[in-house]
Every structure is written in C-alpha cells, then in structure tokens.
Design a protein around this nucleic acid. Sequence first.
DNA 1: CTCTATATGTACGATGCCGTACATATCTTT
DNA 2: AAAGATATGTACGGCATCGTACATATAGAG
Lengths: 245, 245
Amino acid sequence: MPHSHNPHQNRLLAALPAEVQTRLLPHLELVEMPLGKVLYESGDAMRHVYFPTDSIISLLYVMESGASAEISVVGHEGLIGVALFMGGESTPSRAIVQSAGFAYRLLGQRLKDEFNRHGEMLLLMLRYTQALITQMAQTAVCNRHHSVDQQLCRWLLLSLDRLPTNQLTMTQELIANMLGVRREGVTDAAGKLQKLGVIEYSRGQITVLDRPKLEKLSCECYAVVKKETDRLLPYTLTSANASIA
Amino acid sequence: MPHSHNPHQNRLLAALPAEVQTRLLPHLELVEMPLGKVLYESGDAMRHVYFPTDSIISLLYVMESGASAEISVVGHEGLIGVALFMGGESTPSRAIVQSAGFAYRLLGQRLKDEFNRHGEMLLLMLRYTQALITQMAQTAVCNRHHSVDQQLCRWLLLSLDRLPTNQLTMTQELIANMLGVRREGVTDAAGKLQKLGVIEYSRGQITVLDRPKLEKLSCECYAVVKKETDRLLPYTLTSANASIA
DNA sequence: CTCTATATGTACGATGCCGTACATATCTTT
DNA sequence: AAAGATATGTACGGCATCGTACATATAGAG
C-alpha cells in the first residue's frame, strides 16, 4: 500500500501552530519502524524523540526475572521519549515497536531549542505527557482488578485506535508479553472472543469484526483513557489551552 | 511533638534557587493534613498545589465497582497537583491524606506565574513529574507480577521513606484499600512480617523493627523507584540539570 | 466499668491464573 | 512434497487471592 507520508498523520505534530511546524519540518526525519525494533533500552540516554504515524510503540518494563509488562501504548496520538524533555533523559523501561509502520524522528536538541522559544510546543508536549500518565495509572488499576479477558479487550481497543484499519498483525505470544500473562491465557481469552464473533484471527492476523461488542466486554479502563486523551489533546491547539497562565 | 515547620522540609522547595524561594515564600501557606482528608476528587479542577512535609498523600483511583487502587504515594519528596501545570487541570484520581501531618500550599496561579519567568521552577517540577511517572509505571508492573506479601513490603518502605520516624499510623483496612486487596490479605501478610520480627503492630500502629530485612523481602519495585527518584531529584538543583538545553 | 465501635485473627470453598506438558495446525523452506 | 519452524489449542494439578462468615481483642465513650 503505497500511501504518502505526512507529519500531520501524527496528532501532536498536526496540532502545532503553523509557525512551529514550519520551523520543525526541515528537522523531521521519516523513519521506518519494523516490528520488534527497540528504540531505547531501560536507562539509555535518548537522542531522538519519535512521533509515530501508523506505527505503534510499547513502553515495556522488563523485570529481573525476565517477565514483562506493558506500561503504556503510544501511536499517532503521541510521542516516544518524554524523558528527554522532562529532564531525566532516560527511563527504566524499554520502547519497542509493537506494530510496524513509520514515525517522524526529531533530534532531542531540536525539540529543546523549540522549547526554549517558550512557545506552544512545550505546552502541548506536557499535555500529552499527562495523557500518558493517565494511561499508566489506568494500567496499574487494570492489572490489579480486571480479568485477562477484559484486559485483552482493552488492549485490542487501544491498539485499534492507533491503526488505520481494523486488522492487527499480532501473535498471541506478543500480546501475552504485553499484558504480562501466559500465552495460553491469551489463547483462551481470544478463543472466547472469536466464539462470540467479536474477532477473527489466524497466525498473527487479528480482525476486529464487532467493535461495539468489544467495547462492551472491555473494562472501564479503555473508556477512561480514551476520554482523557481526547480531552487533553484537541486536534488543534487553541488559544484557550495554549497558555500556561 | 511541637517541632517547627519550614518549607525546606519539602525536598522540592528546598532544591529551588534562593531567588525563587524568596519570591514564593510569602505565598506558601502551611496547612494541616488530617488523615483521610480529600485534597481533590477525580475530575476536580485544582486550585492549589501541595508540598507535603511530614504528611503522606495517596493518589488513589476508585473504580465504578467501588474497588480502589493506589497509583502513587507522595510525601516530602514531591508535590500534589501536577495536572495543574501539565495543562489538564484535573486527573481521574483522588488525592487523599494517607498519613496525617502538614504541607505547604500554593495557589496554582502563583506557580504558573513562576513558570512564566522561565526559570528553574518549571524544570524541577518536570523532573519530579518524571519521578512520579516512574512510580506509577512500577505500580503497574508490581500489580501484575508480585505477591501481596511483596507489595506490602514495598508499600511500607515507600511510606517509611516519607516519614520522620519508623512508626506508621495505618490500619490494615487502609493499607488494603491502597493495595487494592482484601483486608484479610493484609492481615495475613502483616502477620508473617510480625512473626519474622520485621514489624510490630497493634490497632493501626506499625513499627518497623528490621528495615534491611524488609527491603530483602520486598520486590525489586521499591529499589527501582527509590533509585530513580534520587537520580531525578538531587537535594540541590545545580546548573548541570537546571537548563532544559 | 461496661458497652460499643473498631481492629485484627481465622477458616473454607470458589475461582482465576500459573507452570508445564504435549497436541495440532499452518506457514516457510527446500 | 517433505521437513522444519512457528502459531495455536487443550489439559491438569498447584497456588494465590477472593468472597464470605464469624470469632476475638482492644480502645474509647458513657
């Protein structure tokens, strides 16, 4: 599918004032994001931030035991590398491509240069960071209280929102790593959804057939995150939310 | 215990350059934080930020079902109300006093005024926010993979770090709400720790007798959060980390 | 000093997920 | 077409936690 690439496919880049976009454009580099690529490891100093378009990146925590759990999902609504401008430069998590696609890359220093102009870029990035915080918080809650069945629904919906189609390329093994459960647990949960006619899958290709039912089967966590993300990230930044004062 | 209060008892306030401290001082209001007081509810617009000194505040998520789970703990190392400067003004969580004490309160507008001077205040607040993010992420992981026994240890250590003594005033019922488990589960876990001579408790008074052993019994999550918080929040802000560029 | 509220202890079946083992199905390579 | 690799299906005992019920202990109020 040879479709054209455009920075506006990322919601954050699209929301920036024209002036900022013009300044940044020459520095935005389109990069391919193959499945499984690690953008940074736990503790790595980050050189770039990434604005995904049709790719999905997972923030994954890998424990001493080797077990893992997804902290949050980032797609065209956000960016990878908030630690770069939050001041820490690194985080104790891994950023790994969960669904192949593209992203625009920007040198960290360029972003900071833009911040130092004291314009709207910083404010937008902070708002996005709050959306990310919401997602992490909800992940914590979900891990505590909801069943694997519910969590799978939440996870599928979060992924779906970040893809142009209703098809996910995603093995059950991979999903299990993200949810931090056994692969067999995902098999069971996915089997139930298939039996209900909600999804259809085979060898890593998942098609969502009945999204409304998927939302009904999901826990409240999906809706909370979605609603808050939409609240925090208007498609265009208006003067109303463009000033810190 | 009639000890004197001082804004420097909060690590963030203490780390600010003298010039900023001088400016803020007239606006910092010492307020009492009684156990159970709700600083803000989910969705509330926040008027103030709070810098705890010897109090501990929980960010708690309350689900539709009424079940709850703690997202993060905030004490003298941090502040309550990051959403105020991150741009969202509210969050889908409750801030509730988990351990009584005091805090300094600052009108949100004063904080934003200080931010608009483009000084070090913003940078320090962002660094703290990253520490908070780390704690939330680790909570998510911990909820997924660790036993109630381990989580209780982590939770006691996080609380202990924010108190001046090794005594916590904390019923098992309250701890259960924070961890998002049954009260009986906490009774069991606490009973084991008492049998091991690690803690001693009765009717809401917990004394930690053997902190090293408590750390050994805890999962890695405590150490990860502690280390990252210390990395991100030096006790004094130096020029090395005072500039976004 | 008694009463009552609060805090903690104990028990037990139900359940959801785990660890493990192995079977089956589908794609890829040769 | 055969062989190997990958993905998915199924089964089963084990265990942590849950939901529930009830008992006991301690503090504070009257």
